[in-house]
Design a protein around this nucleic acid. Structure first.
Lengths: 218, 218
DNA sequence: TTCAATATTTAGATAAGACTAAAAATTTAT
DNA sequence: ATAAATTTTTAGTCTTATCTAAATATTGAA
C-alpha cells in the first residue's frame, strides 16, 4: 500500500506523462511536487523498488501497470469527492481542490464504491475532467481548446485546462460555465484574442483564456 | 495546527480523562495508542511545548483549553462522518469506525460546517454518542448502563459503551438497535445476568452485554 | 520506613521524507 | 569533438515519530 507521499508522486508522474504517454524527468517531478531534484530522486528510487515505476538512472521514469492503477485510483477519488463537495455540499468549483487533495488519500474500497453510487456514477468532475471508472479506465472525450476553434463555429464549454481558483473565478464573473454556448466570430492575429458571442452578448476573449477553456463542437 | 499523530494523542487523552475530568498517566496513553511509554513521553513533551496539555514529570497530563478544543474538534468530525456513512452511504454501524478514523483528520472548516448542515445537524452518531457542537460543547445526556436498571423498569436503548464490530454485530443479530425498548424482569445474582423482555420476547442478557449497553429510562 | 515493584523518563538508534552541497552524467553549443 | 551548461545522482544532515535499553522516580507492601 502506497504512503500519502508516494500517492502524490504517482499522481504527479501520471499528469506529467500526459495520461501515461511520455517519460517524465526528475526535474519535472521535482517542480510539480515543489521539492528539490534530490528529493525526487529519493522517491523515484523508492517507487522503483516497489515496482510502481520503470526507471533507469538519468533516463526518466514511466509508470508500470501497478503504478498507473495506483495513480488513477487516487485521481478517481479526488474527482468523486469534488463532485460530492459541489453537488451535495455548498462548495463552488474554485473551492474544492484543496479539500479533495486531502480526501483523495482516504483508503476504503467500500467508501469509494458507495460514494460513487450516492453521486449516481458521475463521469466528470465539476471542472469537466473525466472520472476514471473502478477498473482505472478513463472515459475519453473529444474536447479541444477554444483557441483551436474555427471562425463562425459554435461550441459548448465542457472543461477547463487551468483549474486554479483565479481562472475559475474569472469564468464565474463573466458567466461562463460548463454547458455555456460560445460562437467564435473572429480572431485578432495581433494578440491572438478572439471575438466571441456568449449568452447572445459579443465579447472579446484573450489568448490566455482561449488556451485554458475546453469546448466541444456542437 | 496539530499533526495527525498529535490529534490522535489528544483524542486518546480526552477519552481517557473521561471527557476531561481526571489526569491521565503516560502508561494509559501508551496503551491506548498502542505504542511504548517512551513514545508517549516524547509526544507528551511535544504537546506540552505546544500548550495543548498541562504536564509535570511523573504527574500525568491534563488537556488545556486549547488541547480540549482540538480533541473535541476531531471527535466532532469523527462522529459527523459516521452519521454520513450510515445515513447517506450504505454503511452499517459496525463498519464506520475505521473509515471515520481517517476522515476525522481532514482539515477544512467549511467542509465540517457544510457536512453538518447536509446531515441536518445531528446530535448523536450511529452508536448514540453525542456530537459536540462547533464551539466544542458536548450535548450531555442522562443515559445509564442497562446493568444499573432496576427490576421491572422499562427503558430504551440509546447507545453503546463498547462500539467494536463484534459487539455491534451481536446486537444486530439479536435485533437490539438504538430505540429498542427493553424491560428488565429480574436479575440473576450468580452470574449477574438479567432476564429482560425485548420486542415482546423474553431473553437473558449476560453481564458483559448489560455493562456495554446504554439506556434511558422511559 | 525501607526496599522491591512499577511507572516514567532519558539516551541513543531507526525509517521516511525532506534538505544542501558536491560529484557525476548528459546535453548543448561552438 | 570538446568544453560549458544543465540535469541527475550521491553523500551527509535534519525532523517527526517511533523503538530498545538503561536510568531514575514513585508507589506500595512488609
Amino acid at each position: 500500500m502506497a504512503t500519502l507521499s508516494e500517492e502524490n508522486y504517482l499522481k504527479a508522474i501520471f499528469h506529467l506523462s500526459k495520461y501515461d504517454k511520455t517519460a517524465v524527468s526528475t526535474n519535472a517531478i521535482a517542480q510539480k511536487m515543489e521539492t528539490k531534484a534530490s528529493s525526487a530522486t529519493d522517491m523515484i528510487k523508492k517507487l522503483f523498488e516497489k515496482g510502481l515505476i520503470d526507471y533507469q538512472k538519468y533516463k526518466g521514469v514511466k509508470l508500470t501497470k501497478n503504478g498507473r492503477l495506483a495513480a488513477v485510483s487516487v485521481i478517481r477519488k479526488h474527482r468523486l469527492w469534488e463532485v460530492f463537495l459541489v453537488n451535495k455540499l455548498r462548495f463552488s468549483w474554485d473551492e474544492v481542490h484543496e479539500v479533495a487533495e486531502q480526501l483523495e488519500h482516504i483508503k476504503s474500497k467500500k467508501l469509494t464504491r458507495e460514494l460513487d453510487a450516492f453521486l449516481e456514477f458521475p463521469t466528470e468532475d465539476p471542472h469537466g475532467d473525466p472520472i476514471p471508472d473502478a477498473n482505472g479506465n478513463m472515459p475519453s472525450s473529444q474536447k479541444l481548446l477554444l483557441a483551436k476553434v474555427k471562425q463562425l463555429q459554435r461550441c459548448i464549454c465542457v472543461g477547463v485546462k487551468d483549474s486554479t481558483p483565479k481562472f475559475l473565478q474569472y469564468l464565474d464573473k463573466h458567466k461562463i460555465a460548463l454547458g455555456t454556448e460560445i460562437t467564435v466570430l473572429s480572431r485578432e492575429s495581433y494578440d491572438e484574442s478572439m471575438a466571441v458571442k456568449i449568452n447572445n452578448i459579443q465579447r472579446s476573449i484573450s489568448k490566455e483564456v482561449a488556451h485554458n477553456l475546453f469546448v466541444k463542437i456542437s
